[in-house]
Design a protein around this nucleic acid. Structure first.
Lengths: 234, 234
DNA sequence: TGCATTTTATTTGTCGACAAGAATCGAGGC
DNA sequence: GCCTCGATTCTTGTCGACAAATAAAATGCA
């Protein structure tokens, strides 16, 4: 077997091992490099990363806590499956979180938050222009994550991050099939959301976030199946 | 040192160790038996539970993933602190989750769900009558957790569970200071919520859940400090 | 040949041990 | 007397190994 880049990193700082394998595995799962259902062999990973099974297991436990891997007792852990029969619950949740975090961002953001958000959006426009689906998906996540952070509610932020990550896998499946144009309208909607946050217009943020979520949900549902989502006027 | 009950359980099934120590530690944290900030020594726990450090560490990693313990590199893990300066974000989140999960329960509950919810509420009334604060706090959590389960959205359920658990610590602090009567009005509100769910009246569920949350938040805030929470009309 | 059962092999769960880093304690200097 | 620096102790992070449990292969039987 050829030397992988991980093996060359012989000298690692104590405690950095788990973080490395955690982030690496996480990225490979979210980009579907590791497809859902793929078994995860501990010894295999151990020799791949050139370390013992102990830090590997710790990383797997953390990933299991986030729902990205499923562990069966005395059996191999597997990459978490995507339950398409429960997609509507995902749509419900991401729609509400888009609305809530964008509202909160309008209220609590500071100038430096806006700079971060705008930077992500600029990069988003770039990768859409470059027709790079993988980068587009990752940056879209960063954009909404930055908005959630600006809202300064760690509970909402953590759920939003989890949903955004799960969404990376779903979007990847979506764009893997459709290799057509990356939609420009999302970029426009992002800019409108930024303007609404900067203007601290809570109601406008709510409407834009909901419309943004609706747009994405509509596109995905007509690919994966009917829209099982219910309207949540609250 | 005297033999503890854990040590007497010499024969354990393979794989049950982590679950045992995870649930035990979790319960001790949520009941404030282990106060926030208390350092958690791995070898101490290892000999207390009569097992190696490996399963102890795995349990700690899981608890850290849920935010119940904080780990510092190369230093002792500690029971997660309660950030009182961010209590308002907790109130925001639990209020919204009460509303959303109760709404969803009204829509998606099945007859057997109602039985479970009613059973929890009966037990709630019992422990309130018995003036048992610890049991009241635990059963209150189970009651709202059952409602969230009946709503059948795993994303909302998981955030709700996390908030309910965090709430157990806050309520414990609250009732530890006030050793006065356990409020009867919560029990009445619970019954009203059950009736609204059974009637599948979504809007009524929303109003009742919000009022219920408001009631609790009001009581806690006048103890811990001013209500920093904002109104979220959505 | 097809199925049930035993045997082998693979993979996980747990253990004890060692080394790196941090906290504690003590000695020395100002 | 107080601060700084070094040695010691203590705790964590990682390792290699062993045993239990499952999966796979081989064997026996109809």
């Amino acid at each position: 077997m050829a030397e992988t880049s991980e093996e060359t990193l012989a000298e690692r700082k104590r405690g950095s091992g788990v973080k490395l394998v955690y982030e690496m595995l996480r990225d490979e799962i979210l980009t579907l490099t590791l497809p859902p259902g793929r078994p995860i062999d501990e010894v295999n990973l151990a020799e791949r990363f050139g370390m013992s099974r102990t830090p590997i297991r710790e990383a797997l436990v953390r990933l299991a806590g986030e729902g990205l891997v499923e562990t069966l007792p005395n059996r191999s852990a597997i990459v978490a499956n995507i339950d398409f029969s429960k997609l509507h619950t995902f749509f419900d949740a991401i729609t509400l979180m888009y609305r809530v975090t964008t509202r909160l961002a309008a209220q609590y953001h500071r100038p430096e938050d806006l700079e971060v958000i705008r930077a992500h959006q600029e990069r988003y426009a770039q990768v859409v222009a470059a027709q790079d689906p993988l980068a587009m998906i990752a940056v879209n996540r960063d954009f909404h994550a930055a908005i959630a952070e600006a809202g300064r509610n760690p509970y909402f932020t953590s759920l939003t991050l989890r949903l955004l990550d799960e969404g990376r896998r779903i979007l990847r499946l979506y764009y893997q099939s459709f290799n057509d144009r990356l939609p420009q309208e999302y970029s426009d909607e992002h800019n409108a959301i930024i303007a609404a946050i900067a203007a601290r217009d809570i109601e406008l943020c709510d409407r834009l976030a909901r419309a943004h979520a609706d747009q994405i949900v509509r596109q995905i549902r007509q690919f994966f199946g009917r829209d099982m989502r219910q309207d949540v006027p609250l």
